[in-house]
Design a protein around this nucleic acid. Structure first.
Lengths: 153, 153
DNA sequence: GATGACTAGTTGAAAGTTCAACGGACCGGC
DNA sequence: GCCGGTCCGTTGAACTTTCAACTAGTCATC
């Protein structure tokens, strides 16, 4: 077995800061959203993507891809959101296998309320905590990470 | 209700890049580690913290804090790791409520093997995908985020 | 040395996620 | 037209995480 190229001290420090910081940050956001609005971050993300889609609806597979979730997970989560009345599912005329997830008016209203609090928390613990130049660096960096993930499949 | 200060376009782009990128990256790392070594990232993190501790052992509460996990979750996860023979738990003489989680030799060996692959994947999709200056920015930024999380409790 | 408040860690059930398998619909070649 | 391969989305079981008790030990005060 060849010796792996270990990270140097600075790389390790930066990588760990990201791992620890992002775990703790998403944990906070999740608890915050759940306590104030009864939504998990992944449910919230689903509502966001739907709200931005034309006619506020998306095919399940596309929604799953947008929200970086497995189809199975989305299916279960959508069932929950549907039973809360925030989403409903209807067939797709052009492809009879297909299903459209629609955002309901209640869903839009719930999202609007949740987003107001959520953005404040994101500001407080992320955007406003970070030097503006460093924030841009994060944007560039994770765009590059995603590009590499995409080209790997 | 006062209008929240929404993120501007650039802030939103950067925030979303982070959210999407980090979800997809940790997802990949998790699958990779699970497929090659039968460990989840959170199990891996526990082994890492133990391996770095003096005498390769830590009190449960301290380990939970280091790994950013709840005590309950750590308790369950440790049971699993214990049944795999990677960790064992023993009492604490100075505080009879206390429990030390120890890394076994098998645990250390498993971690060593896993780390060799893990670091390669981290390099490929994170460290080597990112401009060095941007990586430093990430380190600074998430250190700042953690500092703010700490001072909020 | 009792009392009450707090901390360490575990437990079991509920809630959520992953995994493998499935039913049905599209699509290509024959 | 039909047969195999593939894609869409769902399902139920297995697994993991969260939540709310709970036991037991410590500590401070009286």
């Amino acid at each position: 077995m060849t010796e792996p190229r270990w990270l140097d001290a600075a790389q390790q420090r930066d990588w760990r800061a990201f791992v620890d910081g992002s775990v703790r940050l998403t944990d906070l956001l999740d608890r915050d959203l759940k306590a104030k609005h009864g939504l998990s971050v992944s449910e919230y993300e689903i509502l966001v993507r739907l709200s931005e889609a034309p006619e506020r609806r998306l095919r399940m597979a596309e929604l799953a891809a947008n929200a970086s979730q497995s189809r199975s997970r989305l299916s279960h989560t959508c069932s929950r959101l549907e039973s809360k009345g925030l989403v409903f599912r209807g067939g797709c005329p052009s492809d009879k296998r297909g299903v459209y997830a629609h955002l309901t008016d209640d869903g839009f209203a719930a999202l609007d309320k949740a987003a107001r609090d959520h953005v404040e928390t994101v500001r407080e613990y992320f955007v406003d905590a970070i030097d503006p130049g460093d924030l841009e660096a994060i944007g560039r960096a994770f765009a590059a990470v995603m590009k590499r993930l995409d080209s790997a499949g």
